[in-house]
């Protein structure tokens, strides 16, 4: 019941936007080259499911491979440098700087190094997701309070035990924050990398070629796929987060 009440306003708002969109396009006679009506996009979507799913499979491979490698290495490096304040003081300011940079610019370089197929997209995603994870996980590992650390010491817990039982769990909310940021970043990275060269399949490829042919409805259909993919990806990570960090203040209150 409560879920239904929470869902209603955004659904009504979304439906209203679609209706107004359809109405404006029909009444004002907007040419479909500029803005196709939602119904036209839906029709196109249904007719091109084979193409769209091929594109999806091509792109998602690079996204997932890059997402896994980038986040895993980011977390691993954060744990490794955790024991060395020297490395932390050297690496973290650099990590902060790099996360403000337009990293997406490495896309053409990665395409040159790893070829047109999905590994080059995965490489772009690795570079994009690594730094947010590094910075967040490092902050998370420092987040355990000194009282709790002292308690672990009175238990005679070693470094490994303190890490496993206290510091990694207390870092989880930060890690999940990075995981959520990285869902969007990884999709963006893979799609933009496809602008720089692909085998003739993939969502980024589809968008850039269909724009060239002025078949805008196909572009919108691809964007629908991208939007649903991005939202689902984010939702899955958020769901896992809720399961894994149910003890955290932000969920306990509800």
């Amino acid at each position: 019941m409560k879920a239904a009440r929470d869902l209603l306003p955004p659904l009504v708002f979304g439906a209203a936007v679609l209706l107004i969109w359809e109405g404006v396009v029909r009444l004002a006679g907007v040419p479909s080259v500029i803005l196709p009506a939602p119904s036209a996009i839906g029709e196109r979507f249904v007719h091109s499911i084979p193409t769209l799913s091929a594109d999806f499979l091509q792109t998602i491979r690079g996204v997932l491979a890059g997402y896994l490698i980038g986040n895993a290495t980011g977390l691993l490096v954060a744990i490794l440098i955790d024991r060395s304040p020297f490395l932390q003081r050297g690496l973290l300011p650099l990590g902060n700087l790099v996360s403000a940079l337009p990293i997406i610019g490495v896309a053409p370089i990665m395409v040159m190094w790893f070829g047109f197929d999905w590994p080059s997209k995965a490489a772009v995603v690795v570079v994009m997701t690594f730094f947010p994870m590094l910075v967040n996980a490092a902050a998370g590992l420092r987040s355990a309070g000194s009282m709790e650390r002292d308690l672990m010491r009175t238990y005679g817990a070693g470094y490994g035990q303190t890490l496993r039982k206290l510091r990694l769990p207390s870092a989880l909310p930060f890690v999940f924050n990075a995981l959520k940021i990285n869902t969007t970043l990884s999709l963006i990275g893979a799609i933009v990398a496809e602008f720089f060269g692909t085998p003739t399949v993939g969502m980024g490829f589809r968008i850039s070629t269909e724009v060239g042919h002025l078949s805008i409805d196909m572009v919108w259909a691809t964007i629908v796929v991208a939007a649903v993919t991005g939202s689902l990806f984010y939702a899955i990570v958020a769901l896992v987060e809720r399961r894994a960090t149910f003890w955290h203040a932000s969920y306990r209150a509800k």
């Binding site: 929470d6 955004p10 602008f195 968008i207 572009v219 939202s231």
Partner: peptide, 22 residues
């Protein structure tokens, strides 16, 4: 907030950059 915020969030899970050429 209830009607707009979910869409603002959703608008970002969409790879906006994909819209750029269009």
């Amino acid at each position: 907030e209830h009607s707009l915020m979910p869409w603002i969030v959703a608008s970002q899970t969409v790879p906006i950059i994909a819209l750029a050429p269009m």
